[in-house]
Write a protein that binds this DNA or RNA. Sequence first.
DNA 1: TAGTTGCATGTAACTAGTTACACCTGCTGT
DNA 2: ACAGCAGGTGTAACTAGTTACATGCAACTA
Lengths: 320, 320
Amino acid sequence: MKRVTIGDVAAHAGVSTATVSRVLNGGLVAESTAARVWEAAETLGYSPNALTRSIFAGRASTIGVVIRDLSSPFYLDLIRGIDEVATAADSPVLLANTNRGADREAAQVRAMDQQRVRGLVITAGETTDDHARRMAKNGTPCVVVARTAAGLHSVSLDDVAAGRLMAGHLAGCGRSRVGVISGRDRSTQVKRAEGLRSRLAEHGLPQPEEVQVGDEAEVDEAVAALLGRADAIVCTTGRLTVAVHAALTARGLRMPDDIGFLTMDDFPWASALGITVVAQPSYEMGRRAAEIIVEEPGSPVEVVFEPTLIARGSCGHASA
Amino acid sequence: MKRVTIGDVAAHAGVSTATVSRVLNGGLVAESTAARVWEAAETLGYSPNALTRSIFAGRASTIGVVIRDLSSPFYLDLIRGIDEVATAADSPVLLANTNRGADREAAQVRAMDQQRVRGLVITAGETTDDHARRMAKNGTPCVVVARTAAGLHSVSLDDVAAGRLMAGHLAGCGRSRVGVISGRDRSTQVKRAEGLRSRLAEHGLPQPEEVQVGDEAEVDEAVAALLGRADAIVCTTGRLTVAVHAALTARGLRMPDDIGFLTMDDFPWASALGITVVAQPSYEMGRRAAEIIVEEPGSPVEVVFEPTLIARGSCGHASA
DNA sequence: TAGTTGCATGTAACTAGTTACACCTGCTGT
DNA sequence: ACAGCAGGTGTAACTAGTTACATGCAACTA
C-alpha cells in the first residue's frame, strides 16, 4: 500500500536519491550505476511522482480546459484537437465542464489555477476573464476560444463572415423572409446576426426576424413564432440544431420544399440528413489553442478562423 | 511573475505559515488572526497550490479517464457522467484519448499513475489491466468500463442481453436473414454476437452472417459483402453507425422497406432519422464509475447495466 | 612526485505546503 | 497562591522529489 519512492530505489541500488534522479532525467552517471538503478526501479515497480516534479518546476504539465457544454459537437472536436497537441507535448488534459453556469465557470477557472496548469483553454463567459488575466500575469498562458478578450490569447471564428455566408446562401437560394433562432449568450451570436443582416441588406432583402432562445425546451415555441412569416429558418448556434430540426419535422415540414433550413457547425449526421451548414474548423481550432499554450508567445495572439459553407440542399440550391 | 506563496501571506499578516494553513483548512485560530490572514490572502491574490497539497496527501484530487475514442457518442456521455460526479466531489477530470492504439493506451495509464490520480476510469484493451491492478494494489481505485476484468472494478453492459434484444426485435419484425457488422475489438463484440445468435436460434432463424470491420474505411466493403444475402443489417458497435447508414443510403436503399437496420447506442439524431437502436445508459455508467472511485469500495465491484431497445422503425415494427 | 583535471557521486538546501509538538499566555479551581 | 488546563501560535520535521555545490578518486600532465 505504501508507495515506492525515489528513496526506496536509491537504497535498493545502493546510491543516493540524487543519483537516481540523475539516471531518470539524464544527468552524468556511470553506465554500471545507471544499470543498477534501472533494475532497482524495475523490480520495485517505481513510478515517479509527477506532482512532486511539478511543484519543483513551478507548474504542472497539465493543460486545463474549461468547457461550457460537453454535449455540443463543436466542443467535442475542440477537445480532440487540444488533446492531440497536448499528448504530443506530454501534457495530460484537465477537463472541467460547466454546463453554462456562470458561478461554476468561475469556480472551475479558479480550480485550474490552483492545479497550476501549464496553460488554460477557456470557453466561458466574460466573467472569467479577470481571473484569466491574473493567471496570464502569473505566467499561465490562457487562450479564450470562440471570442476575443483584451489582453488574452484567443482562437475564434470570423462570426460576421459566418453570418454573411449564411445570408449569401439564402439569397442565392431565393429565400427572402428569414427567421433566425439564436442562443442567448455572448458576442458570437450578436456578430453572426450582424453579418447576416448586413449581407441580406446588400441583397436588398428584408431584415430577418430574430428569436433568442435559452435552451432546447424553448425552441419549439420559437419555431412556432417564426413559421408562416419565414421561408427559411436559420439557426446561429450548433447546439440547437437538433431541437430546431425536430421542431420543423414535427410539424410535417419538409426541407427545402416547405421551409429552408440553415444552421451552424458541421456534424457527422448532417450529410445523411442533407442539412446545409456553415462549419467552423473546430478540431483545428483546438489544435491551435493548445499550440499557443505550448509555444507560450510573449504577447497576446489572436487567431481568427474562416467559416465554410457546406451546401447540402436543406435550403435549396444556390443559383451560381 | 513570481507566485504568491503561503509564506508571503504569512509575512503580510504577521503570522507563521502554520497559522495560515490552519486558517485555510479550518484549524484552531483566533477570529481576529483569521480575519487578518484572509485579508492578506485577498490583497496578495493568493491561490493555494493544489499540487503541494496533493503530495502531502499522498495523491492528487483528480480523477483520471482514459478514453479509447473521443469521437464516439458513447464515450462522450460517459465523460459527462464522470465529470458530473467528479465536480460534485471537487475532483477535476484528467482526460487522455488513445485513438485505440495499444501502445498509447499503456502510456496513458502509466501517465495517470504518475499523476497520482485519485482513481482511474479505463476504457482500454486488456493490455492495460496488469498496470491497473498494480495501481489498485497501491490504493488507486481503477474502474474498467464496457467489460469486466478480474480483480478490478467494472461498469459494463449486459452485452449478451443486448444481442438478444436485437435478435428478438429482428424476429418480431419478420426479418430472417441477418447480416452483422461488428468491430474488431474485444469481448463486447463477441458477447453481443453471441446473444444475437442464441436468440435467433431460439426463434428458429438461420445464423447471421458476420463481417468484422476495423474502421470506417472498411465499412462500405463489408456492407457490399452482406447485401443481397440479408434482409437486415445489424451493427454491433455504435461508432460505425454513421458509416453503415451512409453505405446503405449511398446504394439508394430505404429503411425499413429495402433493408432493415438496427444498431447499438442511442444518439441525438437517431430519432430524426428513425433509426432503431439498442441503447446503453452511458451517462449513468459514467456516473456509476466515478461513484465507485469516490466511494473506494474494498473489494472489486461489478456493475452491469441492462440495455434498452428503442424502436423507431428502421427495422420495421415488431408484431406485438 | 606533486598538481591538475574531470568524471562520478554524495550532501544538503530547496520547492510549497501540512502537521506533530512545544511553548506561552491567561483563566479557573482548590 | 499555585497547579492545571485550554486556547492560540510558532518551530521544525515531514511529503517526494530536484539540483547547486562539495568531495573523492583516478588518470594524466609537468
